[in-house]
Every structure is written in structure tokens, then in C-alpha cells.
Amino acid sequence: MSALPQPNPTSSSSQRARRQISDRTILHLFIWPTLILLILINIFPLFYSLYLSFTNYSVISNKPPEWVGFANFIRMLNSEEMWSYFALTGRYALLSVGLQTGIGFGLALLLREKFKASGFLTTLILIPMMLSPVVVGLFWKLIFNPAYGIFNYLIGFTNPAVAPDWLAQPDLALFAIVIVDVWMWTPFVMLLCLSGLSAIPDYLYEAAAIDRASSWFQFWRITLPQVAPLLLIAVLFRTIEAFKAFDVVMGLTGGGPGTATNTVAIEIYRQAFLGQFRTGRASALAYIVLIIIIAVSNLYIRQINRAREG
């Protein structure tokens, strides 16, 4: 293409001759920087960590990685502690995704009715989702503070002496994190549901009214099946995120008190960057989490496809 003089009404011919860069060159210029970054930051670590997960490597020891086969995996899967972290993460995911789905869908149903300032209100509700998780962690720490935080005050504990310390009590810390996650990510579920709801044509409800269906019947037989595909996508995204829960947890409790909020993602971090810096074990754990996420996602996706077809 570069060899052929092409008529170009927007630039003069002399300029074109000097400046001409072939499409192919442009293509390379755009693709390679991205591709190199991607390979360095994503692809290489992905495969290198897979290799490391079969070694006893530690980044702070000066020894080269030594092949240990499945030892790391076996160790992890046989560790009672590790199972408790998985159970904890599962509980967290269930609570957090369940609440987000329920509240998000509810809000979407409310905001679907057009009223004065409903657009403004929708934008307002979306704000938490746009904040950085680190910022969210930091200021919820202040909100939960038993001495001067506003959270206890709002739920009725006006005396700091008897008020719960959400982040320091083992039985409450997980709920505190769930509350923050729900606060932050419910808008996301709501947004997807809202777009699903607005795609349901009015005439279906008109036909249903003619067919003498009650509002309840319409909800179960029309609204729910029609939004189901999008609702399930929202649930899928949130479940994957919940299994990877790290940033907000780190910001709020760092996994504590003790191991009360030690999700698997935090545990990976602890293995990799605290104490012994067990890089090999951390990599193995990360791969176990990856496999679980892939398995769960596949279950969901099958469900979504079924909802699409009916």
C-alpha cells in the first residue's frame, strides 16, 4: 500500500511523501509496546510462577530454585489451616456476593422507575465503585474506629466504651469486611441489573397485564427470567473477585485479628512476602486458587448459557 500513491484530499502530496509511514509500521508501533509489557508483567510471571510452584524457591535465599515435584501442593492441601482459610474465603464470598446481589437487584428495581432526579441518584450510588480500594480501606478504617468512627454511632452505639470494635474483634472483623465490600460493589451489580431491566420491552408487561398476571407473577415469570443472564454475569464477576479478595482486606485488617480475616489471597501474600518468603509455596497456593476460580466460573457460565436459552 505504501508504494502506491493514493489520493488523499486532506494532506498535500509533498508532505505525504516525506511523512509516509506504512500501515504495517504503524501496526507494529502500536502493538509491540503493549505486547512486551503484557509478556513481561503477565505472561512471563504466569509461567515462571507455575515453574516455581514445583520448587522450594525463596526470593530471599541465595539458592537457585530446586525441583520438589508436587510437595508444595500436597503440603498445602494437607494443611488444616489452609482449609480453614478456604472455608473463610468461601463464607466471605457467599455473604458478600449474596448481599450485593440482593441489594443491587433491589436498588435496580427501584431505580428502574423513572422519577425526579433518578438519573442523578443513580450516578451518586455508583461513586463507591469508582474509588480506589486502598482509599476505601483507609477511610472505612476511620469509619469503623470505635472511639470516633461514625459507623457505631449510626447503628446506635453512642457510648464508645461499650461499642463494638469491628476490626479488632475476631467474630466481627469478617462482617466488617463484608460490609465494606457490599458498600463498594453493590453499585456494580445494580448497574448490570439496571441495564438488564431496561432491556425488557414494555409490551411484555402489557401482555402480562392483559393476561391477568399479578405483579408478583410478572416478577417471577417475566422480570427475573429476562434479567437472569445479566444478573448471573454480575454474580460471576463478583464471585471471582471475592475469591481474590485482597486489597480492601489488606487495607482494613491485613488478615487479622489473628487469622480472623485471613482470606486465601492474604495467605498467598503472607507466604510470599512475610517471614520466610516462601515463593514456591505461595506460587502453588496461587495456582490452587486459580483452579478453583476456573472451576466455579465454568459452573456459572454453564448456568448463564442455560438462562440465555431458557
Binding site: 409490551y203 402480562a208 427470567p225
Partner: peptide, 23 residues
Amino acid sequence: FQFFALYSHMTARQNIAFPLQAQ
């Protein structure tokens, strides 16, 4: 309706049964 207004996520049988189920 002019453009049928059938429930797209249901089979023909379920569409026809809908008014009866609603009652």
C-alpha cells in the same frame, strides 16, 4: 398485539399457558 408481544424466554406452550397459570 401487532408485533405479537410473545414472552421470548418461554416456549410456545408456556406462552399459551401463561394466562391460565396466572389465574
